[in-house]
Structure formats: structure tokens, C-alpha cells
Design a protein around this nucleic acid. Structure first.
Lengths: 206, 206
DNA sequence: AATATTAGATAGTTAATCTATCCATCGTCA
DNA sequence: TGACGATGGATAGATTAACTATCTAATATT
């Protein structure tokens, strides 16, 4: 298809499509002459992915580019790839770690949960920040609640892991990376809705 | 305390503190003269909250302002307050609803789950968008998985509801609003860590 | 042949989030 | 009591992200 059709199919404005190509998020079309290029279904899907990662998962374009890059050119193994993908997801712990580079809260939590983890994994720092942020406004989470969360979350991730395709490594990696990023908004929306449901049942309509 | 101490205690730069005051996110100090104002612990906490909402929960300042406004001046009842707070959380469904203002996927999911919900509640649109985004990149979630998620999420929210203080309405609202926003990053980080733990157990080190 | 479309380049726009400076006070301490 | 540093309030500038618009020469299309 030509670019005008790609624009129509994807709903992304022409100038924006060109911008994404310039930024390396969207692969260029196959040029057939000096002023023509041919685009495929893969381009439509890629545009959907860019929009999903930015608009729904909330990633800045540059981080979406990292995630997309990992799908196109994954690291040799699943753990490294997922590790880099997770580091591209908010909250970004890039700064302000000089205070507590040992992640005391996160480590304590993970040990109580009996979980295996790599201390270098970005999610450890992310958990530390999230726990510290809650505590800093007087909303520190109780151990009991944290353990309860952990148990249910482990059940949720069992669904995730069960759904990972095992045919090829590439498929497994792509599915894991996208599943990590794209199912998070689903989980959050469901929790918000569950709050409403449960509050209505407990406290009645008001 | 004076502003210089507030700056030191909070770690927020002076110019930024003044900016937050200008924008209405931080209440001004109690002015004692033309060039002096007194700040309190409440100001420190408020700065912590602003940073938690922006840096960790990922809200733009303006949305953080809405959440803070709801805490300072809540709606008369919990549901309306939570409703407005949730609408201030990403993903923002402000645009692009002309396509499906009836939220077919979200409604189907909620009915299967047997949940009570208000169709106007922002989280319904957020769930719809999240489900559609996943589907648009070939990662549509299966019914089975969605129901499994729902069950565990309901258990998680039971912890949340149990922890809501019931002394005063204001406390309940504040706790609910902050708990919704600030515990989400904890849940996401824990899920990311659970993935690593479970993948390591299932697939071994590589 | 006339018209519409395109690639590729470049420049401009808008909004968000700070950051810096200035000045007229004011408090404080020698 | 006087000098000096800190402050409030105002205003202006900086930086980045994410587009959006325009232009040109060439190519399709009819």
C-alpha cells in the first residue's frame, strides 16, 4: 500500500508517520522510486504498537523505541531482554539512587515472599521507589498486605507464563515483552473497577 | 520553618517549590511579613506527595493537582471522589471514544466477572482502551485469562478495602484516593518481579 | 499533458516542567 | 544600628518531547 493508505488505515497523521520513520520507530517503506515507497501490514501493526505503548502503556516515544528495538533485535536470552524492557517502563529509577543503592524495602519484601530475583533487575529499584513513595506520604504498606498482594500477583503471573508460546525463542520474547507492558493497563483498570464493585457491595450505594 | 529549610528537607529545588506554589499544587506558607513566610510539616508531606504522584505514579503535574484537590476538597461521597481521581490517572481516555462509546469489550468482561459498575466510571473506558490496544497488536487477552486476572484482582482489592479507615469520611476518601494511585506502581513492580521469579523456576536460569 | 501524490529535508509549533534573575523588603547578627 | 544575606513575588528564559507544516523535485495517475 502507499503511504496515504497507511495513514488512513492506522489513523496516524502523515506528518507523524514520517516523524516516526525519522526517529527509527517505524521501518521505512520499500522504496520503488525516488518518490514512492510501498508499505505493508507490518507497518500498520507497528503503528498500532507505537500508539499502544505511548497512549495506553504511557511510555515516552524514546522508551517505546527501546521496547520495539528489543522485539526487532532481542538479546540472546529471555532474561536479558525482559530486563532491558522492564527498565524502559515507568517508574524510571534512573536518578536518585545514591540514597539507598541496596534497596532495603524491596529486598525485605522479596525475601519474605521467598522470591528469586536479580538485584540488578530494574524492577527491584522500581519496587523500592514505589514502597518509599507510599511511605513518604504516610501510606506505608503493611507486611501483611504486601504478602497478600504477592500471593495473588504470583497467581496472575502464572497465567502470563502459561500463555508464553514455546515454539521459537523470538516468539517467546516478543510475547513476554509485549505482555509485560500491554497487560499492565488492563490489570490497573480492573483493579480500579474492582474497587468500585467491592466498595458498592460493602458500603452500599453511598 | 523557612523556605530554605523546606527546600532542604524535601530535596525539591527552591525555584521548583515556588513554581508549585504558583501552580496551586503546594499551599503558600503563612506569611509573617512582606518577605517571610512560615512552612510546616504539612508542606513537606505535600511535596513528597507531589513527587510521588509525578515521579512514581507518573502523573503529569496538572493531573496530580486534580488528585491533590480531591484530597483537600473531596466530593460529598466516596464514589464521586474516587471517580474523579481515577479519571486523572492514565491511560487517559479523553479522546477517541467516538468509535465505541459503548465499551463492548469492557462490558462483556465485567459481566462475565459479575461485577457491579457504573458505565460512566472512567475505568470502564480505560479497560476498553487497554483491551483494544492489546488486541490491535495481536495480543488479545483470552476470556479464561481475563477471568483469572479478575479473580485474583478481586482478592487484592479486598486487602485494599479492608485497610480503608472508617473513622471519618475524609480519612476514608484520602486513603482510597492515595491507595488507588500509589499502590499501583507497587503492584506493577511486583508483577515484573514475579515474572522473573516464575520464569527462572520454570525455564531455569536461561 | 495535466493533476495529484510522494519522499526527503527542514523549519516551526505547542505544551509541560522547570530554572534563573531581579528587586524591594525584611530579619539577623555583629 | 547598620550591613548583609535570605525571602516573596514577579517575570523571563530554558529545555525537552512530540509533533505539524512547508517546500521541492520527482514520479504516478488519468
Amino acid at each position: 500500500m502507499r503511504i496515504s493508505e497507511l495513514v488512513q488505515r492506522s489513523g496516524v497523521p502523515l506528518a507523524t508517520v514520517k516523524y516516526y520513520i525519522r526517529e527509527g520507530l517505524l521501518m521505512p517503506g520499500e522504496t520503488t522510486s525516488a518518490t514512492q515507497a510501498r508499505y505493508s501490514e507490518a507497518h500498520v501493526r507497528r503503528l498500532n504498537l507505537i500508539r499502544a505503548l505511548t497512549d495506553v502503556a504511557g511510555l515516552p516515544l524514546q522508551k517505546a523505541g527501546i521496547v520495539i528495538g528489543l522485539i526487532d533485535h532481542p538479546q540472546p536470552n529471555l532474561f536479558d531482554t525482559l530486563g532491558k524492557a522492564v527498565a524502559a517502563l515507568p517508574p524510571y529509577a534512573d536518578a536518585g539512587e545514591a540514597d539507598a543503592p541496596d534497596y532495603p524495602r524491596a529486598k525485605a519484601a522479596l525475601e519474605k515472599l521467598g522470591q528469586v530475583y536479580d538485584p540488578q533487575y530494574a524492577a527491584v529499584a522500581q519496587l523500592e521507589r514505589a514502597l518509599a513513595a507510599a511511605a513518604s506520604v504516610g501510606m506505608a504498606i503493611s507486611d501483611e498486605r504486601l504478602l497478600g498482594y504477592g500471593e495473588q500477583i504470583m497467581r496472575i503471573t502464572e497465567f502470563d507464563i502459561d500463555a508464553v508460546p514455546t515454539d521459537t525463542v523470538h516468539d517467546a520474547i516478543e510475547h513476554s515483552v509485549l505482555g509485560t507492558a500491554l497487560y499492565e493497563p488492563i490489570i490497573l483498570a480492573m483493579r480500579r473497577l474492582a474497587h468500585q464493585d467491592l466498595a458498592a457491595r460493602r458500603f452500599g450505594g453511598g
